[in-house]
Design a protein around this nucleic acid. Sequence first.
DNA 1: GCGTAAGTACGAAAGTCTTCGTTGACACTA
DNA 2: TAGTGTCAACGAAGACTTTCGTACTTACGC
Lengths: 129, 129
Amino acid sequence: MAAHDDPKPTSGELEILRVLWERGPSTVREVHDILAEAKQMGYTTVLKLLQIMTTKGLVTRNEEARAHVYEAKQPAEKTKRQLAGDLLQKVFAGSASQLMMHALSGKKASPSDIEELRRLLDEYEGSTK
Amino acid sequence: MAAHDDPKPTSGELEILRVLWERGPSTVREVHDILAEAKQMGYTTVLKLLQIMTTKGLVTRNEEARAHVYEAKQPAEKTKRQLAGDLLQKVFAGSASQLMMHALSGKKASPSDIEELRRLLDEYEGSTK
DNA sequence: GCGTAAGTACGAAAGTCTTCGTTGACACTA
DNA sequence: TAGTGTCAACGAAGACTTTCGTACTTACGC
């Protein structure tokens, strides 16, 4: 069995991953500049987090340039799937309809979102038929 | 300003909440017996967790009997909505269709689940029209 | 060459989470 | 009443998370 467990990112790590997903490979400064807009967060805090994430295998680091360039190791899709699946199991006992019901009740879904959901269901059903 | 924030349960706390949701008000021993089936977990660990959850306001405690009876303070629906909404915002930028897409791709949904999802969409759309 | 700016590395501190050992109270029973 | 079992309370240990100060290194401009 593989010993690499795709560790679940912590809350702080997730914030950084979101930036990396959006921007692609980035330096500490670039990530920090984005994060500091919304939140007070020191430069070395971001650096330390990225270093820890490197040892955990959440990101990879290119050290060629003086300012190292970090990149999310797993594609955003995979991590998102992992997080959604985790919640699905832990809280909703695997019931996707339960999950959706609660997600929708918490926040208005736009009509286009509803449309998209219908399309997803058709597609999903088609793929398993 | 209200100081009561509906604190987000931690992973261990969530396991206990799930038992309380299912069984209703329970003693430490009852919760422990359920949890110990699947997981090694000492009695005093469950007790301590429940005590902490009491101070956090996640559960309430009835001390009338010698064995105190604990009960989830918030209805399951509310906490589940909170957790689903949290993930929705933090990872999927509020897009319910994104959340569902990732949840479904991680695990097979049963045909009845799909059916239920369709029904929910109709209902939801009807309620906001 | 020197000073300054931008970088990484390191470690410590504070907070949180989880676990469990120990203690003391209480009740039941032989 | 002595012994046994059940319970709550407490504290401490260990792991993890987050934050930041400090030190060391490297590049650049004057």
